[in-house]
């Protein structure tokens, strides 16, 4: 008798289970099995097709010795740092401006968030036109009369990586802004009142009272942006294609290059595993931090 209501309950909730768990398990299964498969391939002498065999760390040593990979990794460090810092500052700045209860806030918020809805391929292509000296911003300014104006970072070996930073910041500061704005709005209005009575000016109120409340959000934004930076592929592919030359190579492009251009599956897999390790180097400390925070919160 007592099992019947439970069975009925299960029956009633069956669609929920099916909708949530089946896709989740399929996705997780996919992800994990491909990750494991990639790790296995990275230790095999596979070239065009996967083969069995064991070569130890030979693929890894080979990847780490290529100029391609080293440039890609240096680029990643520069791009990741610049992109994360700039999108953080832009996002925070926009959020603080929007938080002044200005008119047209909803419209502006949508505009700032809009780039996030675009595919990176679209962003990359659009910016590749804008930054193309022959047809984009430089041409426009030249035509307006300032003929000596130069803005040709896209074809400049040293500056090309910054075009990727610009496009990526443009695309994702709106996301940082949305998170910061939510954080700012969650600050108790009484805190600001108390600080006003204490005699703090607007700058000091932000610096000492409001921004400290935002730092857990900041960590979250940094981690999300960093993992985006590490896995960037389509944006570079559409914007610079890794060029000029290999000046804007990023790890994901190197993986693609090894696997599908040069037919070196083993090396490509090794590069992919190196990317995964970089990602874990960001995510594991973050998870640990979250865990500690959670523990502390549940104890308080």
């Amino acid at each position: 008798m007592s099992t019947r209501p439970a069975t009925l309950d299960t029956m009633r909730r069956l669609p929920e289970y099916l909708v949530i768990w089946v896709p989740l398990l399929l996705a997780a299964g996919h992800l994990i099995s491909f990750a494991l498969w990639t790790i296995w391939v990275s230790f095999t002498p596979s070239t065009l097709v996967p083969v069995t065999g064991w070569v130890g760390l030979r693929n890894y040593n080979a990847v780490l010795a290529t100029r391609n990979w080293n440039i890609a990794f240096d680029n990643l460090l520069l791009f990741g740092t610049a992109f994360v810092l700039l999108s953080l500052l832009m996002g925070l700045g926009l959020a603080i401006l929007l938080d002044q209860r200005i008119r047209g806030e909803n419209v502006l918020r949508s505009i700032f968030l809009y780039p996030l809805a675009l595919s990176f391929v679209v962003t990359g292509t659009a910016w590749s036109w804008l930054l193309n000296p022959g047809i984009g911003i430089q041409k426009l300014v030249n035509n307006l009369g300032w003929t000596s104006f130069r803005f040709d970072w896209l074809i400049d070996r040293d500056m090309a990586i910054w075009t990727i930073v610009i496009a990526a910041v443009w695309q994702s500061s709106g996301f940082a802004m949305a998170l910061f704005l939510a954080g700012l709005r969650s600050v108790d209005a009484d805190l600001v009142k108390a600080a006003q009575i204490d005699g703090a000016g607007p700058l000091r109120i932000y610096r000492r009272v409001i921004l400290p409340v935002l730092w857990p959000i900041t960590v979250t934004v940094v981690v999300i942006q960093l993992q985006f930076a590490i896995t960037t592929f389509d944006l570079v592919r559409a914007l610079t294609g890794g060029g000029p030359g290999i000046a804007t190579q990023l790890p994901a492009l190197v993986v693609y290059d090894f696997m599908f251009q040069r037919g070196l599956l083993g090396r490509g897999a090794a590069a992919a595993v190196l990317m995964l390790l970089t990602l874990l180097a960001v995510l594991l400390p973050y998870w640990a931090w979250r865990y500690v925070q959670h523990r502390r919160a549940s104890r308080a």
Binding site: D188, D190, L191, K193, A194, A195, R208, V209, P212, V213
Partner: peptide, 10 residues
């Protein structure tokens, strides 16, 4: 204040 409004980071 009713909510005390203590600065949480200090």
């Amino acid at each position: 204040f009713q909510s005390y409004a203590l600065y949480p980071s200090m």
